[in-house]
Write a protein that binds this DNA or RNA. Structure first.
Length: 252
DNA sequence: GTTCTAGAAC
DNA sequence: GTTCTAGAAC
């Protein structure tokens, strides 16, 4: 059985003491770990660290709810720090996508509205959702980008600049309401097709990702060929920019 | 959060 | 008969 307090224990230690197989990177405000049970090709968790002298303690960092309870300014400060480092992780994933696959695809950054482990954690996950570890409806629906259970970080940050009544409503994070969403029928987040069960959905997600891969690789290949043609034209003295000049003169 | 497994669904 | 889901875990 997984330890529900594992993330809290990671956050309270010096990042350098964590195993290399777990720690991806760290900053003064956060640490980023590999999700132990990744639900996509790339899946990281960004965790806030306790700041020396800060009024926000380990208990306040337990979840979005406890953080919001600590006050609006404190919450905004912690969430901005998480978001900044998550954006950096996203850029690193994109480099790795290019390196390993020759193209990149969307990455989602967000929180689960009802957390399953103690200590606040921001998911940075690639949109393929292709993973051996994605095994049931709850897993899938918790990352569905349009269902509502997965709270995109940009949306959460927008609460701070919205009407106070909306802010107060959103920070309630009614667990009962959000948990209902996990029971919803399986629908492909990309093409909206209904899926009768998990194995069918997984095969479909794989197909959707292959389609993206094929299209993106095609783009790269077409670009390469076009650049090659342009280069050959210039080398053979047939500079296309000269054509424009001649045309202009003819028009005179 | 996962693993295990009974019994529902096909 | 096999696949698949969903709830218990002492």
């Amino acid at each position: 059985m997984a330890n529900l307090f594992a993330l809290r224990n990671y956050a309270r230690k010096a990042p350098s003491t964590l195993p290399q197989s777990l720690l991806f990177s760290s900053s003064s405000r956060t640490l980023t770990i590999y999700d132990t049970y990744p639900k996509a090709i790339f899946h990281f968790l960004v965790l806030p660290r306790v700041q020396a002298g800060s009024a926000v303690g380990l208990d306040d960092l337990d979840s979005l709810r406890t953080l919001f309870a600590r006050g609006k300014d404190s919450a905004r400060d912690v969430l901005n720090a998480l978001n900044e480092d998550a954006q950096g992780i996203k850029r690193e994933i994109e480099l790795e996508m290019q390196e390993r696959y020759g193209f990149k695809w969307p990455i989602w950054i967000g929180f689960h509205s009802v957390p399953s482990m103690h200590h606040l954690h921001l998911h940075v996950i690639s949109s393929d959702l292709c993973s051996e570890r994605l095994k049931n409806k709850k897993h899938y629906n918790s990352f569905h980008p349009k269902l509502g259970f997965f709270l995109h970080v940009d949306d959460v940050l927008s609460w701070f600049d919205s009407e106070p009544s909306y802010y107060e409503k959103m920070i309630q994070l009614d667990h009962k309401e959000y948990e209902k969403l996990l029971k919803e029928d399986l629908v492909c987040w990309k093409c909206e097709a209904s899926m009768k069960n998990i194995p069918t959905l997984k095969a479909h997600l794989q197909e959707e990702w292959y389609k993206v891969a094929k299209r993106e690789k095609g783009k790269v290949e077409r670009k390469r060929k076009m650049e090659e043609r342009e280069k050959q034209k210039i080398e053979s003295g047939d500079d296309p920019s000269q054509h424009t000049e001649k045309k202009v003169k003819l028009d005179d």
